[in-house]
Design a protein around this nucleic acid. Structure first.
Lengths: 232, 232
DNA sequence: CAAAATGTTTGCGTTACCGCAAATCGTTCG
DNA sequence: CGAACGATTTGCGGTAACGCAAACATTTTG
């Protein structure tokens, strides 16, 4: 990946987006690159947090293992999203494991380099605060959903959020452009694989989503999903 | 409240804690004070976020109303805790309403004053990042709990967290020094008033908590609660 | 291309928890 | 102090969702 491609990625990111060209150039220059195959972990939950990452292409699933052996998917991350920074800045071990849901490229900065960048470009710190605020909002919304809504609503809301972040229009409807398993959805919504499967089967029956078993989910009637996600 | 008392409060806070005396003095000087009676709201969810607050004494309950009329308790806040800052810094409306669970005093800063302080004392920005990181961690933990654990475990974990933050030793055990209703606990754990009541009744039966109906919960056997919160 | 591994569907019995309702307790206030 | 209000308890029936299990489909691999 050349310097220009890196800068393009940085422009899309929460951390560098909207900052002046010289900041982008400094950021791109300090960045290393890494490629992950599907299924590879970027780092492990519990590792010492030493490095900031930004997704350049592909998709990461952020998994948190619970003490009693279960697993929760905290979120999916695509191009421009930051990974690891919260743990690095707080100086705590990474609290979750990011796994490539597809072939994925990331840019990385050591904490030392990032601190240099932040010192030289103070706007970065404000962007970091903004990014973390967004994360807090999102978590509060999900907590509220899991705490108060029924499973079908939560699944609908989760699918819609992913569509909003990553959906691509096709002839048949909107497609989620990376493999998203029923297990993934279950671990995002706090339910079981089985319940997700039953729910999606009903949606296929109703013509809301595509029945073809390709690994990519296609939503044919997004508006119906909105109704479900808002149903009392 | 005099300048010294304010400084003492700031020392306990996530934002000013550990910073040099001149920063504390500058912060205390710029702060206004406000008193809330039990039940008063500091501001309303949806209001324009203009002001940062730190709790000086007492206790606030942070309520988030859902679109469909339900309510979620995001957290309780005591002396030293920051309120409103995330919304102010992101320039979005306050996402929740803080209500005094008891008589409560807060210190406040307008956004302009706080920005001046941050400019003059850059360590404040790093502290803000740290504070927000802590919030993210806590939310992720609660999400994980609501998503994977049964109700009794969640209630136990929630009570223990509150005890850890605010518990006071008494002859009978550890006391939660502010009124905490079954409804509050239900809205913190994503269950109903009824289920919380049944659960606490069983705990009283087992001698884990005090049966006397005073408005303050007393935990007689904290260790048993830990067991419950960890039970497979 | 067969075989193995992985992911999905579906049936069925069970249960944790909800939701309603009514009784009881405790507190506030005229 | 008694009445009225709010909070809590408890019973009971219902159900959403789980958990197990077995069949089926799809993808990967040698």
């Amino acid at each position: 990946m050349d310097a220009n491609a890196k800068i393009t990625v940085l422009k899309r990111s929460n951390l560098f987006g909207g900052l002046p060209p010289e900041t982008l150039e400094a950021g791109a220059e300090a960045a290393k690159e890494r490629k992950l195959d599907k299924g590879d972990a970027l780092f492990q939950q519990g590792d010492d947090a030493t490095t900031h990452y930004i997704v350049a292409s592909g998709r990461l699933r952020l998994d948190q293992a619970t003490p009693d052996g279960k697993n929760v998917v905290l979120r999916f991350m695509g191009p421009g999203d930051l990974v690891g920074s919260v743990a690095v800045m707080r100086d705590i071990p990474y609290p979750a494991t990011p796994i490539a849901a597809d072939e994925t490229r990331v840019l990385s900065w050591t904490q030392a380099r990032m601190m240099d960048l932040m010192q030289a470009h103070p706007a970065l710190a404000m962007k970091a605060i903004n990014m973390m605020g967004g994360r807090i909002e999102e978590l509060q919304e999900r907590l509220q959903q899991v705490a108060t809504q029924q499973v079908e609503r939560r699944i609908a809301a989760t699918v819609l959020k992913i569509v909003g972040q990553s959906g691509r229009k096709t002839e048949a409807g909107v497609e989620i452009p990376f493999p998203l398993s029923r297990q993934d959805l279950a671990e995002m919504t706090g339910t079981t694989l089985h319940t997700v499967s039953r729910t999606l089967s009903a949606w296929i029956e109703e013509g809301i989503i595509e029945g073809r078993r390709s690994s990519h989910i296609v939503i044919k009637r997004p508006h119906r999903l909105v109704e479900i996600s808002e149903q009392a």
